[in-house]
Each structure stands twice: as C-alpha cells, then as structure tokens.
Design a protein around this nucleic acid. Sequence first.
DNA 1: GAATAATATCCCCATATGGGCATATGTCAA
DNA 2: TTGACATATGCCCATATGGGGATATTATTC
Lengths: 119, 119
Amino acid sequence: MARAATTTDAFNAVGDPTRRAVLNKLATGETTVKALAEHVNCPQSLVSKHLKVLREVELVRCRSVGRTRLYRIDRAGITPLQTWLTELTTAINQHYDRLDDYIQTLKADGDAVRKGEPR
Amino acid sequence: MARAATTTDAFNAVGDPTRRAVLNKLATGETTVKALAEHVNCPQSLVSKHLKVLREVELVRCRSVGRTRLYRIDRAGITPLQTWLTELTTAINQHYDRLDDYIQTLKADGDAVRKGEPR
DNA sequence: GAATAATATCCCCATATGGGCATATGTCAA
DNA sequence: TTGACATATGCCCATATGGGGATATTATTC
C-alpha cells in the first residue's frame, strides 16, 4: 500500500491552498480560466488541473461560452463540508464543557513549565 | 518544485478520511490512543502519526495520565475551518441567485444531451 | 482554410506522505 | 530491577499529485 488516493472527496480538494483561492474567487461570480489563472497567479495549465479536481468533487461546474469556459461554484458540493463541520461541533459542544478549553490551557501550560516541555 | 507541503494547515489535516474519523471519535470525549486505533481500525503507530498531524495543526491536544495519553479536541483549531466555510458561503449567497443552481442544472443537462457529452 | 485565442491534456519530475514494521521511550506494577 | 503495557519514532516503500512545459483540442475570426 502507499499513500491513499484522496482526490475523490471535497475535503481533500479543499485541502489545497490554491484550490481554496480558486473557490474564493469563484464565490464572487462566474469566471474564466484565464482570469482565475491571473488571479491565483499560476500557469493556466495548472489552474485547469485544479478545476478538474474541483469539478470531479462537484465543488465547481462550468459552461462553454464561445471559446471560453465560465466556471462557477456548485453549491451542492459544499454541503457535505458544512454538514460534517456542523455535526462535529455539535457533538463537541454536547460532550465538552465550556470551561474545558480554559482549564486545559492552564493545565497544559503548568505541566509544560514543570516538566520543561516545549509548547 | 514538486508537490506542495500542506500538512501545516487544518484544511489539509481534515482532508484525510482517517483523521476525520479520529476527530469524530474525539468529538464524543477524551480518548486513548489505543481506543482510537481500535475505533478507527488501524495500527496504533499510524494513529499516533495522524494524531501528531492533528496536534501540529492544533485540532487536537493531549495530556498524560499514567502511561496513557488522553487526546481531546482543541476547539481553537476548528475555528479557521468554520470561518473560511462561512465566509465562502456568505460570498456565494451574495453573488449567486437562488434560482441559479436550478437553472444551471437544467442548462447543463440540456447541453449535455444536445452535444452527447458525458455527465 | 489559415491564424489566433482559450482550455484541456499529456509527459516528466520531485517530493510529500499514508501505511507497515520494528524499535525506542516512558510509566507503572511486582 | 524486571516485565508488561501504552505511545511515539525511525526507517522504508509505493504512489498520489502539485507544478512546469509543450502540445492537442475546440471555437472564433478574417
């Protein structure tokens, strides 16, 4: 075995900074590949690749207009992300106390100092 | 250049399915490495590595108890994820019409049928 | 049809990294 | 001190994949 193939889910797709930048740009409206490339400041061919990944994960969609392709956000693909995050935080709030974080921080600091651990 | 090093941000950390599983489990409370390994069904050594990644990104924290280590969620690390997602969807809602998705779907389907494209 | 523009692909490279395995490190109990 | 248990690390491998450059593909215009 080796590194697992992960580019098949939205979470991994969003893991790449460049792709997040692309999404941020697209969030402001339909855009051209060229425009995206300029905005993200990287070669067009690379942007096309990132767009392909985003398409496969359905975070993005596109339509042809002349010899141009207008890319846009596909809301459907974003839902899973929101859902997971929401459920995660819900579970957390349900199982962790409010003061927990604060207490843990103090505790961790104290321990670190006492034992000379790096923080 | 080559593949960019990305394991330095929470987004990438969450990109891995196993790590998400670990987070899901931890969301229900402090847990032992061993327990996590059993829950996620993968070797302890691997879980330790994933935990290390999650720690570096501050999605997780731990404290020693005897010869055991209790891992817990670190809420602070989750905030960036929520923030980005929220801002993204906010921007989208601000720039995309409600009917857009529906219209685009119809359009895409029609075009595909017309041109014999795969969908 | 030829030339040009916009994208997508293909090929190649470098490396990050998920996973497996053995071992080191640390802690507690007898 | 020795032994057992819990974790973390180091080493190695296989591969996914980000990035670069050139080329194929498709559409537009003259």
